[in-house]
């Protein structure tokens, strides 16, 4: 169905593909590199708020959605330590929930 590709044309195609790949890499880096930090920080702020919602009940804040957020706690456990340190609490604020 295809004409048999000569080694020359396939290597040309590979070269072109590599070149396109390179161009894509440069444009994406040009777009994102400068603001990577600012966007990652904004995202972290949103995540921090979400952590507060999930762990609110444990800290004595009433949260009507806690029945649902309870399920998420094990999933967010990995981030818990970093989060409470970022929030200015050196050790885990929860009595029954020790991570450090």
């Amino acid at each position: 169905m295809h004409d048999d590709p000569t080694p020359g044309s396939s290597s040309r195609r590979n070269k072109l593909r590599a070149w396109l790949e390179q161009a894509r890499f440069f444009t994406e880096e040009m777009y994102s590199a400068r603001y990577r930090g600012a966007i990652a920080r904004a995202r972290r702020d949103e995540d921090d708020l979400f952590m507060l919602l999930v762990f609110a009940e444990m800290m004595g804040l009433q949260n009507p959605a806690s029945y649902y957020t309870l399920e998420l706690q094990p999933l967010l456990l990995e981030r818990f330590h970093e989060w409470h340190q970022r929030m200015g609490m050196e050790h885990s604020p929860l009595d029954h929930f020790r991570c450090c």
Binding site: F26, E29, M30, A33, R34, R36, G37
Partner: peptide, 20 residues
Amino acid sequence: DGVDYVPTNRFVLWGHHFTS
């Protein structure tokens, strides 16, 4: 850390530095 400190290709970095 993938946020502020990211080793970047020098041509890309030049592009950002110059346009800033």
